[in-house]
Design a protein around this nucleic acid. Structure first.
Lengths: 251, 251
DNA sequence: CCCCTCAGGTTGTATATACAGCCTAGTGCA
DNA sequence: TGCACTAGGCTGTATATACAACCTGAGGGG
């Protein structure tokens, strides 16, 4: 084996995860305290603390100061729909990304985007429409609305080179995002842009990004429903559950 | 203020996040090393280490042993589509959840589920079909396939009382899940079960859960596309980005 | 000119120690 | 019986120290 000896705090974590996984420790059971782990395994308390602290952050256990550490009721069956920069997404697949800009203008915001951006209906915002291609196959139509004060040079950008998502991230690197996923029937414009069959449904991801504590950008991302799948395989930073599952695990 | 004095590692984190947020530290910029933080702020190196280690886990910075710490290109615009137990989901909204069991039997697995569960086509698996209601409105059709060896008493369960998801969690509390989201046109059975209009599309979440290092359950969850929305507001444990955004942040 | 080596800075881990804050259980007093 | 208090265990944080592993860049030898 190519085992350069796992660090001790990791061994401790895996020991405990193993006991939980094997049923020796059941939900709500008490996990050995830091000092008990010190006595049992010979590590220092700080090492035991790190192991338990990380297990807590990962959802395996809950800790109460003065009381103890307990196995979580059930590890949150988690998630994972990471939708970031479609260009990156495509690059990761080793494919080629190109984009066509259909609309790049100032316009009065419609009720939907206005509500999402928390501005009055009719407020001028930047409006973008792009078609993203993966190896010449249209894969996403992006309708985006951006607060003018947030990105004043939005009209001068070349969004075939840098996606709006990447551009906005560059302006304010600390963005949070909300996503809403829906299935709809596409209108004719979307349908032809994505070269879709007649009665094929469409997956719409509405994304709102926040900066400085308020929404600054709202986008509707249209995908051909059956052609493109959002896979749960990608592991966002900090999500360790999936990497464990992926790397074979039991030892 | 009701400030019981934040711990120093937290102050350090907020200091650095503040500098990134204000643009003083830009993506790819070098963040002060642990020792520099020690000299600058007077904390011990272990405290600086903890601050930087957590910032790394949260996606703010990247660290390279022997080189330094650097501001992330952009904080992964993250995610959040948490799909867990639909009953819990409905309860959280303060509504009433009921379920109808249409199918609960052993059956030979079709190619799709067989592939997902990594068994041969035709292998006998438990097959469930349920309709979930939120306040008498049909909200989800659940087609589920479970490995027989994993849940031998699957036929005796009353899934109107405990959802399959909760039941499986109880059997093996440590489950991981993958999700794939697609939009499709429902077949007649789904369409009538969900009381859908004629050409309304359908949101399908395919979920595969893992236990003991292998897939044990595969489900297709059908939602009426336009009636039900998966909101990104829920904050899963360990996702600190959203809670920060929620609690007001700048201090 | 290229390659090797080595020094120094940086992260990653581990330990021993210390104190604060929280909670529980039990003691003792009224 | 019922209440107040306390001792002890537990987590949370902080520090000082140590060594290993890693990377870069400078310098020297071929």
């Amino acid at each position: 084996m190519s085992e350069p000896a796992k660090p001790r705090y990791r061994q401790l974590k895996e020991l405990i995860i193993g006991q939980i996984s094997a049923g020796e420790l059941r939900p709500r059971d008490r996990v050995p305290s830091e000092n008990e782990l010190v006595n049992a395994t010979g590590v220092s308390r700080m090492t035991a603390n790190r192991a338990l602290r990380e297990l807590k952050r990962e959802g395996y256990v809950e800790r109460v100061a003065g009381v103890g550490t307990f196995v979580s009721d059930f590890k949150a069956v988690s998630h994972v729909l990471e939708v970031r920069n479609i260009a990156d997404e495509i690059e990761r697949r080793g494919h080629n990304h190109t984009a066509i800009v259909l609309v790049q203008e100032k316009s009065a915001s419609a009720p939907g985007p206005a509500g999402a951006l928390r501005v009055d209906e009719g407020t001028e915002v930047f409006h973008l429409v792009l078609i993203h291609h993966e190896n010449a196959l249209p894969i996403q139509v992006e309708h985006r609305f951006v607060l003018m004060e947030f990105a004043p040079d939005c009209l001068e950008q070349d969004f075939t080179a840098v996606t709006p998502s990447a551009y906005l991230s560059a302006i304010s690197p600390l963005q949070e995002a909300e996503h809403v996923v829906r299935a709809v029937m596409p209108d004719d414009e979307i349908k032809s842009s994505l070269e879709m069959e007649n009665h094929e449904p469409c997956l719409v991801i509405s994304r709102r990004t926040w900066a400085h504590g308020r929404p600054v950008s709202f986008a509707r991302l249209y995908h051909p429903g059956s052609r493109y799948e959002l896979s749960g395989h990608y592991v966002p930073p900090g999500t360790e559950a999936f990497s464990r599952a992926a790397e074979g695990s039991d030892e």
